[in-house]
Design a protein around this nucleic acid. Structure first.
Lengths: 140, 140
DNA sequence: CGTGAAAAGCGGACTTT
DNA sequence: AAAGTCCGCTTTTCACG
C-alpha cells in the first residue's frame, strides 16, 4: 500500500491487515531500519519539468576499469539517472535524461571524454512504454 | 523536498519556502492534478524482497510491429519493470527484474515467445552503480 | 495567500498477550 | 517480542477573509 501511495495513513493500512495503527508504524519503522524500505519519494513526470529526452548508452571501457571508477565518473554527470555494469560486449549501461537532443548530445560528449571510455553505443528513447517506479513483490 | 521524502509535512516545506502549510498543500494538489506529480511511492531494495537478478534486453521485432503491441505484450510479464522503443539497431529495450538467474531465463524465454520478437540481445546487470528514483530538476 | 478551528493522524508510554 | 490501548501533540484540511 505504501508503494501505491507513500502517504497512506497507518490506520488505513491497519484496517486492511487487521492491525492497530501503532503496530503498523512499528513494522514500517522496522522495514526502514532493516533496509527493505529505502525511503519515500515522489514520482515526477520528467517532461513536465522540462526533461523530454532520454537515452540508454552502452559504455565500452579500457582493460582495467573498475566499477568504482565508473560509479564516481557517472555520478559527476547530473544527466545520469542510472548506471549498471553488465555482462555482454559492453562493460556498462548508462541511463541518461536530458532537456533536449542538444543537451543529450552535450552530456554524451562529456561522458565520452572520460579517460576510461573507449567507445559508446547509444539508444535514444523514442517512447516510454512501461515504467514501474518500484518493483512490486508478487502478492501471496 | 517531497522527492527526497514523500512524507515531509506541509508545514516543514512551508518553513523552507516561506509559505503557510495550507498554501503548500494547495500547490502540491495543483501539481498532482496538473500531472507534474504522478504520485508518491516507497523505494524498496529489490534484493530485500527476493529479487536479486536484473537485466536489460534489446528486442528486435518483425517489420510492422507497433509500440502499442510491445506495450501490451510486455505488460503481461510481471518481470518487466521498464520498456522503451529506441533508435538504433534494436526496436525496443526492456528492463527485467527476476528472483534469480533461473527466473530470469524463464522470463526471457516467455518474452522471446512473443510472435513479433525475432531476436533478443541481453545484458545481465552485474551491479547497480547509480539509480536515481526520480530525476531531480536542477536547482536555480 | 493567511488565519483559525475541527478532524485526523502520529508517536510516545504503558499494559497485555 | 510483538500487539493493543490510551493520550498529548502535530498535521491535515476546511471555511472564511
Amino acid at each position: 500500500m505504501l508503494i501505491a501511495d507513500a502517504r497512506t495513513s497507518y490506520a488505513e493500512i491497519g484496517a486492511k491487515v487487521s492491525l492497530s495503527a501503532p503496530a503498523v508504524k512499528r513494522r514500517v519503522d522496522r522495514l526502514r531500519s532493516s533496509g527493505v524500505i529505502k525511503g519515500f519519494t515522489t514520482v515526477i513526470e520528467p517532461a513536465a519539468v522540462g526533461w523530454t529526452t532520454e537515452a540508454f548508452v552502452e559504455l565500452f571501457c579500457t582493460g582495467r576499469t573498475t566499477p568504482a571508477q565508473i560509479t564516481v565518473a557517472t555520478r559527476r554527470h547530473p544527466e545520469v539517472v542510472g548506471a549498471y555494469t553488465v555482462s555482454g560486449q559492453a562493460d556498462a549501461l548508462v541511463h541518461l535524461r536530458a532537456a533536449d537532443i542538444g543537451h543529450l548530445e552535450q552530456a554524451l560528449e562529456r561522458l565520452r571524454a572520460e579517460p576510461f571510455v573507449t567507445s559508446t553505443r547509444s539508444m535514444v528513447v523514442l517512447s516510454r512504454l512501461v515504467e514501474v517506479p518500484t518493483p512490486v513483490p508478487a502478492p501471496n
